[in-house]
């Protein structure tokens, strides 16, 4: 287990390092940052002054090293648009996105585990087919369109929920529904497949045969084993939600890091974009690392791979 953990940790570190280099290069190689900073009407000497002031005249590798060293200590530089530092901006907005993604995950699991279980119990029934149809349809809908349909139904027609903003808990409900809906199909299919496998297993047959109540067999023997891969995937889905929040937060003007990312990209506020990209990617790396370690701890067969 220790050998596996060390190897997996090294992989995560290598990935994190590469991701940071990509985040840096992506927006640095794309054009002359000094010209962007100075604005279109700037004189040549102003551009040159800004280039020196921001250290943009130094070799790229030094700039990267400098940026990474500061980023490791939580200093992502200054926003070109906001007075705050990038780190302060992200710290400010991250809780909103975390709440949104957590709510989304709760909704996704709350839908997918019961539906997936029911679909596996009554295989090939109308319920199974309905759940499958919903999953297929759910994966085909563009997420921004689904969000707008929610806005139209709950926000405009029924007037139950606010359609934009971050002020109250009610503002998070529709965005969380939109995010959760998107994660539901894949989690539901996995629950169903896991339950189908587990229900055919000998220990479930034994539990049945010794006369345990059905509820106990289903929850204690079947679900507990079927749900392990679902939890693993849910962690990955949580990471995906952080990046999916760009679209959803923009639709609902919810002040999280996704909306901040979209605003900053549109304004070419590159330090903010780099910071968010790095934070989200690192979050995903840590999440998948923990998931893999958990899986390996639960299932020794994985360790030998």
């Amino acid at each position: 287990m220790l050998r596996f953990a060390v190897r997996r940790l090294l992989l995560a570190l290598a990935v994190a390092f590469t991701v940071s280099a990509i985040a840096f290069m992506l927006l640095r190689l794309s054009g002359d940052l000094a010209t962007t900073l100075a604005g279109q009407e700037a004189r040549a000497e102003d551009v040159e002054r800004i280039r020196q002031q921001f250290g943009l005249d130094r070799p790229l590798i030094l700039q990267y090293g400098d940026w990474l060293w500061r980023a490791l200590r939580g200093d992502f530089g200054r926003s070109l648009f906001y007075p705050e530092s990038v780190g302060a901006l992200i710290r400010d907005r991250l809780p909103n996105t975390a709440l949104l993604a957590s709510l989304g995950l709760v909704i996704a699991l709350g839908l997918s585990i019961p539906l997936g279980m029911a679909a596996a119990l009554w295989r090939n029934s109308w319920l199974d087919r309905l759940a499958l149809m919903l999953a297929v349809l759910g994966q085909a809908m563009p997420n921004f369109w689904f969000a707008l349909l929610l806005v139209f139904l709950f926000g405009m027609t029924l007037g139950w929920l606010p359609i934009s903003g971050t002020e109250s808990f009610a503002n998070f409900i529709m965005p969380a529904m939109a995010l959760g809906w998107y994660a539901t199909p894949v989690l539901m299919r996995l629950t169903r497949a896991g339950m189908v496998d587990v229900l055919a297993a000998d220990y479930v047959r034994t539990a049945h045969a010794k006369g345990l109540p059905l509820r106990v067999v289903l929850v204690k023997h079947a679900l507990r084993n079927a749900v392990v891969p679902v939890v693993a995937l849910a962690a990955v889905q949580f990471g995906n939600m952080l990046s999916g929040s760009v679209v959803i937060e923009t639709v609902f003007a919810l002040q999280g890091i996704g909306y901040l990312a979209w605003e900053s990209i549109s304004r070419r506020d590159f330090p903010v974009v780099q910071g968010i990209l790095l934070v989200v990617a690192l979050f995903y790396v840590v999440l998948t690392l923990l998931t893999d370690l958990l899986n390996a701890w639960l299932d020794p067969r994985i360790r030998s791979r």
Binding site: L26, V273, T288
Partner: peptide, 23 residues
């Protein structure tokens, strides 16, 4: 598998938006 893991940890929409905004 290293390349796949790296690609997966990049948030796809954010990277695509940033690249399109530049090019």
């Amino acid at each position: 598998s290293f390349l796949v893991t790296t690609r997966l940890s990049l948030p796809i929409i954010m990277v695509a938006l940033a690249v399109v905004s530049v090019f």
